[in-house]
Nucleic acid binder design. Sequence first.
DNA 1: TAGATTGTTAATCGATTAACAATC
DNA 2: TAGATTGTTAATCGATTAACAATC
Lengths: 210, 210
Amino acid sequence: MAISSIPRQTLLRLPVYLSYLKGLGENAPANISSAAVAEALNLGPVQVRKDLAYLPCTGRPKTGYVTAELIKALESFLGYDDVTNAIVVGAGKLGQALMGYSGFEHYGLHILAAFDSNPELSNQKCAGKPILSMDKLPDLCARLGVHIGILTVPASAAQQACDILVASGILAIWNFAPVRLSAPPGVLIQNENMASSLAVLSRHLAERFQ
Amino acid sequence: MAISSIPRQTLLRLPVYLSYLKGLGENAPANISSAAVAEALNLGPVQVRKDLAYLPCTGRPKTGYVTAELIKALESFLGYDDVTNAIVVGAGKLGQALMGYSGFEHYGLHILAAFDSNPELSNQKCAGKPILSMDKLPDLCARLGVHIGILTVPASAAQQACDILVASGILAIWNFAPVRLSAPPGVLIQNENMASSLAVLSRHLAERFQ
DNA sequence: TAGATTGTTAATCGATTAACAATC
DNA sequence: TAGATTGTTAATCGATTAACAATC
């Protein structure tokens, strides 16, 4: 398969560019240079240009990029245009927080429902979305063609939940549980590793105080 | 300043090793080889050895590392031993989810309180911890020597909140708001960029379906 | 035209991996 | 001893940065 491969680091930065540009709001200039974006985000201008070169949106010498075009191109590339359905597995505090986070809608991610093995939670609602029992998961995913699963169960339940997701046709799992999951090759596991972030913070303090 | 510098990538992996080793629980063998750890975490054995070489804990040919020693060394290096106080700024859903997440205590992070500018929230409690009004922030941080701030306010309020944190002596900010913050050199900003993670997921699906 | 800014090629840097001697 | 596994040096890989020609 000859897939247009974009470097991982670039992919991680594209949403940052988009968020910055959108954040300019009313004050946004019609044109913006790589230097201006770089300055604001504390990056190198060449890096910005190289990243943006992956988009079907080219800058012009002397004027830079057309801001509106750039935003469109980023949104389209990142798939914010068309809505992707997702489900949450584990309706604890974190799961509920993510369900209630309206920001995802701007990213084209629509959370349909949550699933939880705790019978006290199921058939309740959260942020206007149903919390269902786990045995309803496979059918719902199949019927609605859901391919993204957000995993917010405790570490001990994560692998089992992952297996259920995979068996239900999920192709990408956003894993908030602090465990390494194993899944077949075609399934992407994106770990949101809070402990790793925390390590960076903690180390910084340790170094400050020797 | 001649600070023992550990590569960022290594630092990010150390908590992953720790979490894996602790996850072995009862079944943990007395000794464990870099190859075994690598296999489980889908890494290279040399990478594991190089990472572990930053710890004051050396392996032995033929037997590997003493599991218990390794866990101790990781915990100590990552500062899980001694408790660090932190505060949450922004007591919305995400802020409350983080306050209620008991996992942080295992990482040596103790959340003392949250602060919110919404008067309806302040003087309430969440997860047994007080939610206070923003004007109480500087004093509390100074009195209790708090150096870590967890920022979970909306994007539009983030820079202002960041400024208050910096002025109150905070040295490391864990930023969940989707904005690039500016802070003086000595202050570390660790961005938890959900949009970037989402981009990876979304791209994976886009490639699967052409 | 002169100057600013792009896009690209080459050089540098940092991190990963391969090779291998040391050693238990 | 022979074999497994470490720790380290050298080679490779990928990403960032520097240099610069193209161009509006």
